[in-house]
C-alpha cells in the first residue's frame, strides 16, 4: 500500500477527476479510489473531507444534499467549471512531473 505522505498532493486531483465523471458522495468516492488502485491506495475519511473543504473553498466543487438512501441523507459533490479548468492544469502539470521524476527515480535498480 502506498504511504499517504507521497500521495498527499494528489488527493484533490483524484477526487476532482472522479467528480469529473459525475456527481458522487463520500463513500462512493473512497470506494472508487480503492477499487481503481486495486486496494493499493486508501483515502482516509478525514483526508477526504479535508480535500472536500479545500476544493470547496477554492470554488472547484459544490455540495448539495442528495436524496435519502438507506435511511441516510448524503451530501453530494459536483465539479464546477473552475474545477474542470483546475483539473486540466493539474493533468498537464502531472505529465511534466512524471517526466522529471522519471529522469531520476525511474531507472532500473543497479
Amino acid at each position: 500500500m502506498i504511504s499517504s505522505d507521497v500521495i498527499r498532493g494528489y488527493n484533490d486531483s483524484f477526487l476532482l477527476s472522479l467528480l469529473n465523471e459525475g456527481d458522487s458522495y463520500g463513500y462512493a468516492l473512497s470506494k472508487d479510489i480503492k477499487e481503481r488502485t486495486n486496494g493499493q491506495y486508501l483515502i482516509k475519511e478525514t483526508t477526504m473531507y479535508s480535500a472536500f473543504t479545500r476544493l470547496k473553498k477554492n470554488g472547484y466543487i459544490d455540495s448539495y444534499p442528495g436524496n435519502v438512501t438507506q435511511g441516510k441523507k448524503r451530501t453530494y459533490y459536483r465539479i464546477t467549471p473552475e474545477g474542470k479548468r483546475y483539473l486540466k492544469e493539474k493533468q498537464e502539470e502531472w505529465l511534466v512531473t512524471k517526466q522529471v521524476v522519471d529522469q531520476f527515480v525511474g531507472g532500473e535498480i543497479k
Partner: peptide, 17 residues
C-alpha cells in the same frame, strides 16, 4: 454537524460492506 453525519454514514456503509 453535517460533517459528522456524512462521515458516520460513510463509515457505516463501509462497515456494512
Amino acid at each position: 454537524n453535517q460533517l459528522r453525519l456524512d462521515i458516520l454514514a460513510n463509515m457505516e456503509d463501509k462497515y456494512d460492506e
